[in-house]
Amino acid sequence: MKTIARSKAAWVAEALRQFERPLLRYAAGITGDAELARDVVQETFLKLCTADRAQVDGHLAAWLHTVVRNHALNVRKKESRMAPLLDEHAVPQADGGSGPGIEADRNETHRLIADTIRELPPDQQEACRLKFHNGLTYREISEVMGVSLGTVSNLIAGALDLLRRRLRTVLDPVREA
């Protein structure tokens, strides 16, 4: 019994180590609030503790992201219902939801990329975050977002191509002209 408990603790600790931060960012992108994101992610890990490990092993990343996503969407729904009542707690609408929360004084290229991502439609933003920040595979993203593999491929290829073209105007303006 003891060894089971210990190895479960190790399993959860490893999951925390690996996914805590990317999950928080992902959740914050959906809820638009760091505090809510923390509660969502804690809830997710608590759920992991009681989950049947056999069901989760092998697709831990997809499992965690799916739970975070569902939970964060619920929270957002609840918060947006409450917002009009509690003005001071109204969540300031982050421009573009899951766009990168980057500071303005980074270098120009980074700013260009951040701005471009924020212009993308929400599902494309979400796919980009899951791919480039959380490091999920196409298959995992399709599982988490509940869309087909083809859609994921399309979303990401489209986004990356736009980013590439925007970058070219900065990195190689002569050629573009």
Binding site: R21, R25, A28, R38, A114
Partner: peptide
């Protein structure tokens, strides 16, 4: 570059108390 942009976002972490609670639950 996109990965870099995401990676340079301010870091978010759970509170110590939250993390401890998860670990307590994991060892329960």
């Amino acid at each position: 570059l996109t990965r870099e942009v995401y990676a340079s976002e301010p870091d978010l972490q759970l509170d110590t108390a939250q993390r401890e609670q998860v670990m307590r639950e994991a060892t329960a």
